[in-house]
Simulated assay, not measured.
Amino acid sequence: MTFKRIAILVLLAGLSTACTTPSVSSQRIERTLVKRGDVQIETISQGKGPVIVILPSLGRSAEDYDEVARLLATDGFRVLRPEPRGIGQSKGPMKVDMHAFAADVASVLDHENTGPVVVVGHAWGSQPARMLAVDRPDLVRGLVMAAASAGKLPPGSTEKPYGRLREAIDGSGNLALPESQRLTYLRQAFFAPGHDPRPWLTGWFPQAHEAQAHARDITPVDAYFAGGSVPILDLQAQYDAVVVPNVFKPMLGERVTVQVIDDAGHAMAPEQPRAMSAAIAHFARRIYAQ
């Protein structure tokens, strides 16, 4: 084989490799800071394509969705994960209502110039997600309510909204408790039977937890319950011990689609990241095609 032919083959091989690695470059993770007055929001971003925003659960970081975000980015989406105040480099006044948490997300989307996007709110994150859809309808075209407590209850229910397993939810992130007690709480509130709750022994941010609970308690549920008028995916977990299921659709009608993730509890993301990401991607494609 001549030297010239070898050189051509090497060049073609390099071109072939370059053509098959865009998914690798799409996984480049960036962290940016957006400042608005005395508020600073850190955002984890990766991927290229239509935007999906993920808002984390009570007192926990956007890093819980590392695998979900990776899968979505591989699937052709740009994923933005704003860290709530009190987590990472995000900071600001902590005695605020749900409108303020929604405004933090809006500042990130305005900075990115995204236009209307699909927003995923996991557990507590469903509340600022819905608030954002109410306060800034120009920024939201669809909502995914992942393991989301609706904040309202079916007619005739005697439960208290956001009241299920309150001791276990709050105790799971109480770092002053013995590890054995926290594991018991994690099993009760967050993980499906047979799943290891140890990954969630860490990753709790008590100051953020307190601020988010305060915002939930002082903001009327009716201010954000409906999430504006956009389509909603009610993404339920088969073994969710915290959420009262099937509240959204009876109250909000046909704009709500219900899907259940098998073998998952309230934590969902560490238990079934592939199923969670696939459900989000399917919904997002439908919304962006409209």
Rank of each mutant, 00 (worst) to 15 (best):
M1P: 14
F3K: 13
I6R: 14
I6K: 15
A7S: 14
V10G: 06
A13P: 11
C19E: 03
R31P: 01
K35N: 12
T43A: 12
S45G: 08
Q46T: 08
Q46C: 10
V53W: 08
S57A: 14
L58C: 03
A62Y: 00
Y65E: 06
D75H: 02
G76F: 04
V79Y: 06
R81F: 00
P84Y: 01
Q89C: 00
S90G: 09
M94K: 08
A100Q: 07
A102Y: 00
H111R: 07
E112H: 08
G115P: 03
G115R: 08
V120S: 09
Q127S: 15
P128S: 05
M131V: 00
V134M: 07
V134R: 06
D135E: 12
D135Y: 00
P137T: 03
G142W: 08
M145L: 15
A148D: 05
A150E: 02
K152A: 06
L153F: 05
P154S: 10
S157R: 06
S157Q: 06
Y162A: 07
I169T: 07
G171H: 12
G171W: 11
G173D: 02
N174R: 10
L175E: 12
S180V: 07
Q181F: 01
L183I: 14
L186G: 13
Q188A: 14
A192H: 11
A192E: 06
P197L: 02
P206Q: 10
Q207L: 10
V221G: 08
A223Q: 13
A223L: 04
A223C: 09
A223E: 15
G227E: 08
P231R: 01
D234I: 03
L235N: 03
Q236N: 09
Y239K: 11
D240K: 13
V244D: 05
N246T: 09
F248H: 09
V258E: 15
D263V: 10
G265D: 11
A267L: 12
Q272P: 09
A275G: 14
Y288D: 15
A289C: 03
Q290M: 07
